[in-house]
Design a protein around this nucleic acid. Structure first.
Lengths: 261, 261
DNA sequence: CATATTAATTCCATAATGTGGAATATAATT
DNA sequence: AATTATATTCCACATTATGGAATTAATATG
């Protein structure tokens, strides 16, 4: 469907640029102005875009917020986890997040900021790679060996920082270690100056449903603080797991290597 | 653009039903199965839908959450207001909301729940009428007389409850009263058993940018508590206004009748 | 203030694209 | 194993999206 691809290209361009006129859209997408105009006019008619009467620029409307919110609600998880994220922030004075896996990336479902001057810049819906983040490594560590191998073959690993783990054996070792102690650590692997501690939220069957994490500026999270944060995050993640019906006493096998309960 | 209208019909149907197969989509929209399938397949290709491999049903993907979140971020307002909503909840033990006007409705931009058993059911992006809600009346009270008259002519008013104000003069009187005391009250006008107190957030030029409200079960908010809540909400709304650069000392005229500062 | 310039919008002949009935494949049910 | 319901593929056809050219509107320039 060529026309639908064009529509999506235009929506994504406006999303990225915030506001755009027909000219800009036409230039950027390569569609002739009348084509861009026709698509935009239809989206305005359906209230997915609105036109700033002053600048003539088009922006995404609140309709997207409405639909996005419906999607988020499907993940009841976010509702259960919210109070725990807030507690985490209160206990650690760092930012807390809830993420789930979506294909080969981790997606932020929720995020509670601490009130430090040095703020992390994350937004709900944002995506990060699995191999280079604490939350991602929790998800990888919960996969079956087969899935993990497929993932490693499928996804190219680039060095975001000097500390990013790109070597397969090193990564596998890190995952084993994470499982053993019950939490994963991101030691400035995705971004220089940011450390993160993450623990799994389990489904009732023991599989990994989501990840809860605490992250902040590396200056405030020295290596010797990691163990304490790990304990706290692990405890909170377990509480959310329990809310989802998970019972750590029951040993179950879902194909993945088991996390330390 | 006929094909785009079809695409939107399908997306909105899936949003409403949560999950739907080709058959359901076809039945509901009237498009033949191959047409529905082609559109759905393209949306899956672009990752806007995903197919549950078990049930074959299609659901909206997190992509919508991603775009919705971008839209929300455009309203920086939500970021500024969040801590104040949380304070409101702490101070009043009731739920707090942030809404803006979108055409003839009020749209929830953010919402912080209290932890009562009796929870309000609101979701970000949801829409409510202006004339029958506290938040809506704040918006109406900030409109110019001309805009208000046009609104009253344009929008039909139906009785949601026995207390809904549908009479024009009564409504105008209520708005004047609200402006005078600095906050608007929804006295079970939208929904039996729910009361709400709302106050305006002003732009730097004095116009109404948004509304902050506290709402809860009418049993917990008896009439004699309204004045105290009004004071608190008004104070918090003013704090957000200040964050947006509003200075209550400067008298400005934006066409709307003035709110008590 | 007239003129040039740029962007937005409308028009419409044309061909490319979406259409949907029919056929086939797949999954669920009896 | 047979039947039914649903999903998917195929393809001849005509409807619909296309985009160059013309027109209009908004903005900048001399």
């Amino acid at each position: 469907m060529k026309s639908l691809h064009k529509v999506i290209d235009i929506i994504e361009f406006i999303a990225a640029s915030g506001r755009a006129g027909i000219r800009e859209i036409s230039d950027h997408t390569g569609f002739p102005p009348p084509t861009a105009h026709r698509i935009v006019a239809t989206l305005v008619q359906r209230r997915y875009l609105e036109q700033d009467p002053a600048t003539k620029g088009y922006t995404l409307s609140l309709k997207f917020l409405e639909i996005g919110s419906i999607v988020q609600h499907r993940f009841d998880l976010a509702r259960f986890a919210r109070p725990h994220l807030e507690l985490l922030v209160a206990e650690t004075k760092e930012s807390a997040s809830l993420v789930v896996r979506d294909r080969d990336e981790a997606v932020y479902l929720d995020h509670v900021q601490d009130d430090h001057m040095l703020q992390l810049f994350t937004r709900v819906g944002a995506r990060v790679p699995l191999y280079a983040t604490g939350v991602g490594k929790v998800l990888l560590a919960g996969m079956s060996d087969e899935d993990l191998s497929l993932y490693l073959r499928r996804v190219a690993r680039s060095k975001y920082t000097s500390k990013t783990i790109t070597d397969e054996d090193a990564l596998r070792g890190n995952l084993t270690q994470s499982r053993r102690r019950g939490y994963a650590v991101d030691n400035e692997e995705r971004e220089e100056g940011i450390r993160c501690v993450a623990a799994p939220v389990h489904h009732h069957d023991g599989s990994v449903a989501a990840v809860i994490s605490v992250s902040g500026a590396a200056i405030r999270i020295p290596p010797e603080r990691l163990e304490e944060l790990g304990r706290i995050v692990r405890y909170r993640a377990l509480a959310v797991s329990r809310a989802l019906g998970f019972n750590p006493e029951i040993k179950s096998n879902t194909g993945g290597a088991s996390w330390q309960r």
